[in-house]
């Protein structure tokens, strides 16, 4: 019962969190990761591109992997695309389980694998009109690899 969405619109963290326990009393904890757009080096906006079709497929695969590793009662992955301004949310990962360890670990796993395993690309736009593609970081590969 995972929720996976790729969208331009902002999302409602409270509503998404509430949806994971609505109408049920077996959820003991919900861990969350909310990724925001920073304004490093005079950044004016991030423009996120993705590979429609493959993105949803890759996210579904990552969620299935998490569900196989931890006993989750639900999880949510919402990633925005298009133009995102500093301070705005980019990505939301929620993992719900009976106990906190599974929820916290699954949440960390989901964002680590999403960063290296889902086809999104960020382009930075600066106030002076300059623009550059964000380069992948070795530290993200290492974070994903540590889950084995």
């Amino acid at each position: 019962m995972a929720t996976i969405r790729v969208q331009e619109a902002p999302f409602d963290v409270a509503a998404e969190t509430a949806a994971l326990s609505a109408g049920r009393v077996d959820v003991g904890g919900i861990a969350s990761f909310l990724g925001l757009c920073r304004a490093d080096d005079g950044l004016a906006a991030l423009v996120l591109e993705h590979y429609p079709g493959m993105t949803e497929r890759a996210l579904a695969g990552i969620v299935a992997e998490a569900e196989g590793r931890w006993p989750l009662t639900g999880c949510t992955v919402i990633h925005r695309v298009g133009r995102i301004l500093p301070g705005e949310p980019i990505v939301l990962v929620l993992a719900a389980s009976r106990h906190r360890t599974a929820a916290l670990e699954a949440c960390a796993f989901l964002i680590d694998w999403l960063k290296t395993g889902a086809p999104f690309w960020k382009r930075e736009e600066f106030a002076d009109g300059q623009s550059r593609w964000v380069e992948a970081r070795a530290s993200d590969d290492a974070a994903a690899a540590k889950w084995g």
């Binding site: 993705h50 999104f120 380069e135």
Partner: peptide, 10 residues
Amino acid sequence: VAFFPPVTGG
């Protein structure tokens, strides 16, 4: 078939 740079989402 698709070609692209290393991914940078999240």
